[in-house]
Simulated assay, not measured.
Amino acid sequence: MDKQLNKAVIQGITGYLPDGVKPLEYFMKFLDISKEASYRRLRGEIAFSFDELVKLAQELNFSIDNVLDEHSNDRIVVDLNTTINADVETGFINAIKENCGSLKQAEHSKQGELTALINRPDLFFLVRFEYLFKLYYYKWMLHTYSPIDRHFSDVVMTPAILDAGFRFRAIENSLYRCSYIINRNLFEPIVREIYYLYSLNLISDEDLLLLKAELIRLLDDISILMQRGHSPSGCTFDFYLSILNVETNVAYASFNEESVSQYWFSSVNPVYIYHPDSCAMNKKWMEAMKKFTVLISQSNEALQAKFVKEQRAYIEQITHAIH
């Protein structure tokens, strides 16, 4: 780290310290370093390590992007949201909290907006249903921690996990508008995943039928949102059917002066970026994608009905898998 950038980092971090707290003593205690090591960091003789920056950012609730932004416009910080050192349940709850935290500013904004480009139903939809939320947890667990050796029916949704899901679902009540650019075969990927897990004897016939029933209910809910254009909480929902194939889920949220982008490189683990310029680029790209879509919420009833019929056909294929 060059001296100019290191100076900016020191000024940025000390600016987030509570009033009356001395930086020297704070760094000694919180980072568990000697007095001399703390002095050397404050004088800029040695740089804070990245691990130290992350630890300070989490404790003082600041974005590393904001500290680095003025002197390093060519760099962005990516939050991979990895919690592999925690146990499975704690790791998942932390992941949900991170997702909630990235959108928490919406609670204080009357103009909170979410724009998402999706090729499968995202957590906002799945968390409303017992078995679909359990499936999300199950896939997260397999992606993050375990080989495929645990049966779906053995997974326990503890009260703490359900509470985290409830808190995430409540974010919708704070949003003013949700715009979804959706793939034409929106339900096919999740149906294919369920079938694959079933073929490995990890999902029972009973659970398969329960998952199918909830997928149908989810499709019915989305159909109602398309027809009405708003949720019971008053959030406006716009659905755009993409002409192009949607390769992965991407989201952009804005509230007050804050924004965040999310990118899914797997079906369950998003990457977060808070850098303002990067978020602005993501927003511009997603707005450009609307040129290759057709609005089907509260319009284009024939195309809307065709979309719902095709998704229902994907879901019905689940029954054909039963031995």
Rank of each mutant, 00 (worst) to 15 (best):
H320W: 05
M141C: 09
N183G: 09
M226V: 01
Q311W: 08
N249K: 04
F307Y: 09
K309W: 10
M28A: 04
F125A: 00
K212M: 13
L186F: 13
K139G: 01
K3Y: 12
P276N: 14
P232Q: 05
E70C: 04
I64W: 00
E247L: 11
K139E: 15
D2I: 13
Y272T: 08
A288D: 10
E257D: 14
T319V: 14
I194A: 02
S299W: 04
L209Y: 02
V155F: 07
S267M: 09
D69N: 12
V308Y: 00
Q311L: 05
H230Q: 10
P276I: 08
L103Q: 05
Y195M: 07
I216P: 00
W285F: 12
K3F: 15
N61G: 02
L202Y: 12
L219G: 00
D87N: 15
S266H: 05
E89L: 03
L24E: 12
D79L: 07
G229E: 11
F237R: 03
V308G: 00
M1I: 09
A86H: 06
F168W: 09
Q304Y: 10
E59T: 11
V294G: 01
V127H: 00
I96K: 00
V127A: 12
P270G: 04
R192L: 01
V191T: 07
L56C: 04
A164T: 11
R40Y: 12
V78W: 05
G112D: 03
R192C: 01
V78R: 11
H108M: 07
